[in-house]
Design a protein around this nucleic acid. Structure first.
Lengths: 176, 176
DNA sequence: GCGTTGGGAAAACGATCGTTCTCTGCAAGG
DNA sequence: CCTTGCAGAGAACGATCGTTTTCCCAACGC
């Protein structure tokens, strides 16, 4: 059910997808879905929480496969590059729901937690290269990552990540 | 009518706001709204087009009030800082609708045009300071601007813009 | 073997949505 | 003064939504 919800919600937006569509995609009965999640809001929340975990662990594994040092920072953008090339790419799911449901406290909280976790991850990556002030570099990295995602999504510009990557390289050179 | 539509759509999302709410907020009759715009989709499009113009001219005026040179680049982030402090701030309207209506070609086109216009504006600003390669600097600036907006919106972190600004200053120093 | 449970298919419900229609009043032009 | 037309208020309509309910069948414990 969460697989079906993620496919549909991420591709078309939460409000544009009805419960019936999720039920049909998952191949379960409406009653079963409500027995497990209680309401659409909580299904959305569960979808976001699982995506939070999956996306961050995916990014972490990409970083870990890179050589230690500054390559690990650049690996973040190589991972984004792969992500953008996916035909199913539709921006950051958490930014999407934050824009779609500005008044939903639960989903906004999940989005906020996700971004904080990403920030923490970036801080750890930067701390591992021993260049400049890790906190400062991480704070520079964060908007570059977010900006690359937004630009790739809204403009459909797949090369946005390359430019953000070059900015990071420039900042790393300066901090060395 | 466009004022009412902008207030409601931007604050609560396009899909969460019904036509009735727009009509009530604008103080006009349903018939009048449909006589002018034909459908909700076209009202949304008109709202976005007007916001595109207004937002860009607002940013332009903020830039023009700064001293020529690198202050004009940093003025972009000072303007963002003011924007984020507005209690009605709810992220970039175009990013919001791109996430909310991924399948709506018309609104996606308006969002794409808006981002291209912003990119062009940033290129002009950077070209005016005569440091480094203007195109490269502008391409670095774009994700930093987008990222600051997204971070301020999703995390509610109003200091995000300060950090993005410091990254820009670092990049400007390097390009000097 | 029989009763209980749980899930599938689908109808039903009330609410809300986008859109259209009806009725009314009013203001301008001949 | 009378007519024409536009705009307001709100009912009405068909569609869709989230949610609940009904009915049926298969699998399990006693």
């Amino acid at each position: 059910m969460l697989d079906a919800a993620e496919r549909l919600f991420y591709a078309s937006g939460v409000q544009a997808v009805g419960i019936d569509a999720v039920v049909a995609e998952a191949g379960v009965a409406t009653k079963t879905l409500y027995a497990h999640f209680g309401s659409k809001d909580r299904l959305v929340e569960a979808y976001l929480r699982r995506r939070d975990q999956r996306w961050l662990s995916w990014l972490t594994s990409r970083i870990d496969h890179a050589e230690p040092g500054r390559d690990r920072v650049l690996a973040v953008f190589d991972a984004l590059d792969e992500w953008f090339a996916d035909p199913g790419f539709s921006g950051c799911a958490f930014v999407d729901v934050a824009g779609e449901l500005p008044d939903n406290a639960a989903t906004r909280a999940v989005a906020r937690d996700h971004k904080r976790a990403l920030r923490t991850l970036l801080r750890e990556v930067v701390a591992g290269i021993g260049a400049g002030e890790p906190d400062t570099l991480a704070e520079w990295l964060m908007p570059l990552v977010e900006g690359a995602v937004v630009t790739a999504h809204v403009e459909g510009d797949l090369r946005a990540v390359i430019r953000a990557r070059s900015a990071v390289a420039a900042l790393l050179d300066r901090a060395r």
